[in-house]
Design a protein around this nucleic acid. Structure first.
Length: 126
RNA sequence: AAAGCAUCGUGUUCUGUCGCUUCCGGCCUUUGAGCCGGGGGAGGAAAGUCGGGGCAACACAGGGCGCCAUACUUCCUAACGGGAAGGUUCUGCAGCCGGCGGAAACAGCCAGUGCCACAGAAAAUAACCGCUCCGCAUGCCGGAGUAAGGGUGAAAAUGUGGGGUAAGAGCCCACAGCCAGUGCUGGUGACAGCCUGUGCGGGUAAACCUUAUGGGUUGAAAGGCCAAAUAUACCGGAUCGCUGUGCUGAAAAGUACAGCAAAGAGCUGCCCGCUCUUUUCCGGGGGGUAGGCCGUUACAUCCUGGUGGCGACAUCAGGAGCAGAUAAAUGACAGAAAUCCCGCCUCGCGGGAGACAGAACCCCGCUUACAGCGAUGUACGGCAC
RNA sequence: UGACCUAUGGUGUAAUUGGCAACACGUCUGACUCUGGAUCAGAAGAGUCCAGGUUCGAUCCCUGGUAGGUCAA
């Protein structure tokens, strides 16, 4: 299902703080990916999208980038469904670039990031 | 005829697939924030946060000083630094008059104080040159009068003409300008016209200030309610035993360690057993963290029409329900249609474009940004040359 | 969300009753030196973030905007 509901978003302030404090990061311009295995009782993989206000002062442009990223995640999150141990993750996608991206180029970048994430996860979990 | 400029209006539409949010209805022996169906889902500025109000908490006898804001008049409004109409000054069409527009922090330097660089004699109770008179030591002299002329400066003592005088001067007169008047007429009023005057030394209040009016402070992360886990004030019940040694103490007693007993908890459905604790266990419980709910979208609401008013606006009748998110939704892709731009083989075809910008408690304004399209004004008449 | 502050040569800072925009470092040229540094002498480099207004005159006063920053939570 290509949904993106409330339970798939990372909303809790304590979880977000834990993600930024303890999470591992991957980077491929212009996206930085932060990930951390979620707790045992987590029901779904949760995602946080962030676009810095410093780089885009206008709310319209920040909304535009977040909508593009959200759409890409919605179409491609199937990749992250079959992780060993059926564990769930907490993810953070931060847009570092200074220009509004194209949908197609950004989609290929995020797919590459997800592939590296799966490799790293398998290595870390043994 | 039209570019530009100013003001006002408008601020693309439709279909399919996949998604988000909210409300309503239905379904279920997987009762889940599940599935199915239907409705709503950014703006004219949502922006800047510059005024004002609602709302909320706190403060508050009354008065004065201070501080801040506002400043032609009348009206509109819940209120405003907003708006309407009018007045005055400046200004555009264009040389003049009318007419039509545009702009104005537009109270008071005739309340007081301060400041006005450089230049200039002098920057505000002004004699440097000049002009006139007087004196005798006859000079590059001294004294007195004089604001008409000179140059400086952003600004020089109201302007023009006449009288007057030794020379001059609002010293006097006429016209003009300014100022004043419990003045007259018109107007609700700002003000306008007229009359009168032993009136006539500039500018600056976005200098201090004076006068008048208004202002309590803080902002929804305000404020109210519910409340997990952990710890715990307090309350109730159970238990807090015996022996030895040490410490404090006059004693009662308190406290630490060790042993025995007992109780409680955990491992379990029960027993044994083991482990832990001994002021501990069980129950209640207030404040309150994470988190959640209310505040929060139904009203100074919008649309249509009537009535009153020059108008802002008021009022009446009928109709409508019009975002409600919260690490924060309102989207992505594809295809049509209309509009605009460019090119060409010009009934058409091909290519391209759609600005400024995203609600965060809610309203009323203001300011700023803005592609394209539409409307109005600029863009009238007379006289003179 | 609310409350404030700042903007001046390349860099860091001055400039008060509103009256010629100043200083240090840096840059450039010359001297000294075998060469460089240090030192000495000299020069260039701004019209004060932008647009209006008040005033004879604005870095300074007022209004609007732009950019950067601070504080509360």
């Amino acid at each position: 299902m290509q949904t993106f509901r409330k339970e798939e978003r990372l909303c809790s302030a304590t979880e977000i703080n834990r993600l930024f404090r303890e999470g591992r990061s991957l980077f491929r311009h212009p996206i930085k990916l932060i990930w951390l295995p979620a707790g045992e009782d987590a029901t779904a993989t949760k995602l946080l999208i962030s676009v810095p206000k410093h780089n885009f002062k206008q709310a319209v442009k920040r909304n535009r980038i977040k909508r593009i990223i959200r759409e890409i995640y919605r179409k491609n999150k199937r990749m992250l469904a079959q992780l060993p141990g059926n564990r769930k993750l907490n993810l953070g996608l931060i847009y570092i670039g200074k220009e509004i991206p194209e949908y197609n180029t950004l989609e290929s970048i995020i797919i590459q990031l997800f592939q590296r994430l799966i490799q790293d996860y398998e290595k870390a979990s043994g």
